[in-house]
Design a binder for these strands. Structure first.
Lengths: 234, 234
DNA sequence: CAGTGGTCTAGACCACAAG
DNA sequence: TTGTGGTCTAGACCACTGG
């Protein structure tokens, strides 16, 4: 296994520190030498050590505090990173042919939970869009979305049968913050039919809300066909 | 909203670049000025600009290539980070009382899928552990785990009715790589009973496999009680 | 070939928090 | 008070890759 970076590169130091943690030279809870000492040991600049240790701390393996020093995490909180691309690219990335069907697009007053989530007035109409994305002709995910026309007035002019709201929004509307939630739900009759699934079959649902500054942009729930897995490596 | 970092700090530059992207001063696909020019504009060292742009690239908002320069991502791939702590801490972190019950711990030959996933011989016995974690006395997650005794011989000596395999392994066995998958499954009769759920109710399942070097350590599936959500912010 | 990002250095000052 | 990490600088060389 020839994968050694030079020991004076930050990646080399990253590897070496990781090795010492894995070999339990430095055990969970131990304080490791400070940056200056490690720089002396490795024969490099302190900034180089800092870069390596900072990344390990961001990964949750080390805990760093000024004056207290750097310790090996007792209860390492693993951080898994999920990539959330545009649906079209996700499907194409699996080598499948992408297609898309708009089901409906209308102005409606949203149900109270949606209104509350977005913090809007009681009689604000939003654009309500429903669509299905297909991979090789098979239903892949059902998109149900509410778009704030106050934040994105152009949404009323877009031909959503040509480009999905998912893709149009990502391309055209920046956002500063958002939140994601994943949960398992039993398929409603409607979702089951759209996905070609059994009623009550377990379905993974991702709900995402995005804002730009304080302005709510959109809330969407993506219901993935049975068998869908979110996968990641650490 | 007073949250401004000085414009010559890397965080200040991070904010300013983000602002220009959001305001579409720099649009998706545009090439932005190189590091030297930005350093001159902001009146700081190139390393400071580099730090800011590197973080934005890691977040998926910029794409950087030597010689080609830095461009605003056309299809920003959002990266959501999930924190995966020890179950006990996750429950305590919600302000609930943690408790735990071991259901069974035995040496068994694993089913073929598990054997294949771990790359083990056909007649290798693994430790098979099943347990339930409770929050305020209510079932929170069912843990079903196979542990490679060759990698972790001490597992046979641990009193798993006192400490969960989840916690003991995280504390005592380092790993170098792992993968996670999340999916929705209909509750089997057994899982439903353990979780106090309806049979066939949708359940979120996380499956995790870990290795140390090339040596497989453990494979575990965590079936969360209905209503469980994975949540994250970007 | 030459322009751009990637990294390293030696040194400096600062911010924070433990004792 | 003082040790530690956090950051910034000015400069340098290198690695990659577009033209």
């Amino acid at each position: 296994m020839n994968e050694g970076h030079s020991i004076t590169s930050w990646q080399g130091i990253h590897e070496e520190v990781l090795r010492r943690i894995h070999l339990r030279v430095w055990k969970p809870g131990d304080t490791i030498p400070n940056e200056a000492d490690l720089a002396a040991e490795f024969g490099c600049a302190r900034a180089t050590v800092n870069r390596a240790l900072r990344e390990l701390a961001e990964a949750g393996l080390l805990e760093r505090r000024r004056k207290a020093g750097t310790r090996v995490a007792l209860n390492p909180v693993r951080k898994a990173t999920l990539n959330i691309p545009v649906v079209r690219r996700e499907i194409e990335g699996r080598g499948a042919a992408y297609s898309y069907a708009l089901i409906s697009s209308a102005l409606e007053i949203p149900p109270p939970p949606v209104r509350a989530r977005l913090g809007l007035g009681a009689d604000t109409k939003l654009r309500h869009v429903r669509a299905v994305h297909f991979a090789d002709g098979r239903p892949y995910v059902v998109e149900e979305r509410w778009v704030n026309r106050e934040a994105v007035p152009e949404i009323d002019e877009v031909d959503l049968s040509e480009i999905s709201a998912n893709e149009w929004l990502i391309r055209n509307v920046p956002f500063t913050s958002g939140d994601f939630a994943f949960e398992a739900r039993n398929a409603t009759p409607e979702i089951a039919e759209l996905l070609g699934a059994r009623e009550d079959q377990a379905v993974l649902v991702m709900t995402r809300t995005t804002w730009n500054g304080g302005m709510p942009i959109t809330i969407v729930s993506m219901s993935y066909a049975p068998g869908y897995r979110i996968h990641t490596t650490i």
